[in-house]
Amino acid sequence: MCGRYTLSASASKLSDRFGATVTSTITDSLPRYNCAPGQTLPVITNENPNQFQQLKWGLIPSWADDDTGGQINARAETVDEKPTFATAYESQRCLVPADGFYEWVRDDTDSETGAGDNTKQPYRVTFSDDRTFAMAGLWERWEPTHTQTGLSDFGAGDADDMTDSEAGQQATESFTIITTEPNDVVSSLHHRMAVVLPPEAESVWLHGDADTVESLLTPHTGDQWETYPVSTRVNSPANDESSLIDPV
């Protein structure tokens, strides 16, 4: 899976890398060293490929009853079949920029005694030159259903009145990251990994048809990738500073 990632690039570097405008709101939020589910994070959608947008990590399908929860990952093998993702896979794709992601390895066995403390050691996976890349994502727009309460219900009043729970609700735009089988670099850390797109495939992912993009949902070769252990402080989404990506 992909449950945390980093985006330490500056706004100007992000704009140059993807040829898209970075809004002041996003600029003020960068860099990010511990992107976590539920947070609002920058992505590029096929609907507006020339400007970064802030979407919530955790895809909520348009037909959901409410905008709580959300799916942070979608499996490449079934993304075109699952009701939660099928519509977005057809026509609502996005690029999720990153320069690394975290995986956790359970350290439960001592090499000499066989004993362990059953803790998990976080590792950062990145390119050796720390370049920015794009993960394949899907996005959705959820809007509240406005239940009308007509005159027959109350004897008087506005037929367009909304229920109390709907009052003040706004549309929620959200995204998920597609995962696939791990390459040789990641396989020792986890049995899944994010689909990392080659730069030349990014535009195809955004604008190609479903049959064309299917071939892109494969593990990256892992060339020039590296992994290294980092502080367990990354375990808490409340921590977000540059020291999190330092090797330990």
Rank of each mutant, 00 (worst) to 15 (best):
N183P: 01
T145E: 13
G155L: 07
D184R: 00
H191P: 05
G137W: 11
T147L: 12
M162I: 13
D158N: 06
T149I: 15
A136T: 10
P198M: 09
T126P: 01
P229F: 13
L189W: 03
A171I: 05
E173M: 14
R233N: 13
T227P: 10
M193N: 03
S215F: 01
I177C: 02
W225P: 01
S187P: 08
H220R: 11
E181A: 05
S236T: 10
S203G: 07
T145L: 07
M135A: 11
V195W: 04
M135T: 11
S174D: 09
S236A: 14
D160H: 08
R192M: 06
A201C: 15
A134H: 02
D129W: 00
L216E: 04
T172C: 06
A194N: 07
P144I: 14
E200N: 12
S215I: 08
T176A: 09
Q169H: 05
E226R: 15
L151P: 06
P144A: 13
L138F: 09
F133H: 02
H207P: 03
V204D: 00
E226F: 02
T163Q: 00
W225Q: 15
E166Q: 12
W225C: 11
R131Q: 15
A194H: 00
F175I: 08
P182N: 05
A167G: 02
S128T: 14
V213H: 02
D184W: 00
F133C: 09
T145M: 12
A238V: 09
L197R: 12
P219V: 04
S215V: 12
T179H: 02
D211Y: 10
T126S: 15
V230M: 06
F127Q: 13
D160E: 04
N183G: 01
T227L: 10
L216M: 12
N183D: 00
G137C: 09
L206F: 04
R124C: 14
W142R: 12
G155M: 04
T145S: 13
